[in-house]
Design a protein around this nucleic acid. Structure first.
Lengths: 228, 228
DNA sequence: TCAGTAATGTGAGCACTGCTCTCGTAGTTG
DNA sequence: CAACTACGAGAGCAGTGCTCACATTACTGA
């Protein structure tokens, strides 16, 4: 059963992934080299294909792990707060997002950066990708249930409410149009700010982007989303 | 002066760039192959190095062109509006941003996607990169001058106003803390939303992301930024 | 227990990549 | 017209992902 091979396989697999992450961090996903991994491990490059069908498969596995990592990080941050402390939960979630992104910049790039054209995200990635999303959705539901109202209204554009109706169905939630718009706006602002910071678009403007990010998330939570 | 060579050089250079963009669009920046470009042009691969010092140099040149392209697109959209029509200008700018991104997805990815670690953006890219930013900054300045006030206040976090003071100096602008925060929030939300859409993170949620984007930008402009 | 099977590692090899170097040719310029 | 320089060709180097035939070695069922 749990013989020598099964154990060795696990170890080899995770060692490959570890070295792959190292390479991606130092030289970028584009320059990930299976041969170099094999060299570092002292084995023939062809042996790697016993563990991963291709370079793309290895990358996909790393992406799934990263989704799970950010998912559990955000879940933990949210779980630490009292359920009624909505503003505190929003703060915890947004801070944990940025912290995770800064700690694992190459993983963030892997997930939220430029995708490879034609790379169809395998279905295996969908569930892990939903974990961090669900934390926000649950928070929004709790906000709505607590009677908080976002400080905004939805412009009466034809098609918008139909689109939001569809979103409710697809995501299995029951949020008002205002809440959906406000939630997506906050979500987009957080990730936009993190991407700007991580991808080097505000280097010349800020010296302490964290201070701005904190102000941003406070503003989004308390004022736009109306959390108390 | 303007001999046969000078003319041929311009033509060859732009033909290389054209084919490069084609390749990036179909196979991604990571899979851009100089040899394939040479093959398609019917010339030796080594000849390409008379025009671009390296693959990276070619990519850098493409990035600069893209910055200029998005910059002029946004400038044109803004210029079409009456100066006093602040809400109209915001709408025009944000719509032109998304339209450009959707029309040129690979260029958007090149600029706003995952950067290559260690790739130091050459100084040549700074000026073109500021063009689209400046359109927003001028709009924010006009909004402030018109007496509009964003519907938000800046949380009194220590360090934030110091940071915004620095931003004022670095960008050569004179906006209030509220306006800076609101402007950056709106900016981040727009790009966050575009990135989510383009990089395939809302595929399963929306069928017409444009409707949501319009609602988002209207909300950001009229309510968060307080444009009239 | 022991033969058969399946998992694992090897090394050669194919077709590709970016890039360099030498060498000949053909525009340009004093 | 001679000297110079820009340009293109082709060979070659070191690297890549991936495949395949071939050993070896751990597991497994009779």
């Amino acid at each position: 059963m749990t013989g020598i091979r099964a154990k060795a396989r696990l170890e080899t697999t995770s060692e490959i992934k570890r070295l792959a992450r190292e390479q991606i961090a130092s030289k970028g996903a584009a320059n990930l080299s299976l041969r170099e991994i094999a060299r570092e491990m002292g084995m023939a490059s062809s042996a790697l294909y016993r563990y991963f069908a291709s370079r793309d498969q290895l990358l996909t596995d790393l992406i799934i792990e990263s989704y799970d990592d950010i998912g559990s990080t955000v879940e933990r941050a949210d779980a630490k707060c009292s359920r009624e402390d909505l503003a505190g939960r929003w703060r915890a979630v947004s801070q944990s997002l940025r912290t995770w992104a800064i700690t694992n910049p190459s993983d963030y790039g892997l997930i939220f950066g430029t995708p490879v054209p034609g790379y169809e995200a395998p279905t295996d990635t969908i569930a892990p990708a939903l974990r961090y999303t669900n934390v926000l959705l649950r928070l929004l539901a709790d906000v709505q249930a607590a009677g908080c109202r976002p400080l905004i209204t939805v412009p009466t554009t034809k098609g918008v409410s139909r689109e939001y109706k569809r979103a409710r169905a697809n995501l299995g939630i029951n949020l008002t149009d205002e809440m959906i718009l406000a939630g997506l706006a906050g979500w987009a602002a957080l990730f936009g700010a993190i991407s700007f910071e991580l991808f080097g678009h505000v280097d010349t403007v800020f010296t302490d982007p964290g201070a701005h990010f904190l102000a941003l998330s406070e503003m989004l939570g308390s004022q736009m989303l109306g959390m108390k």
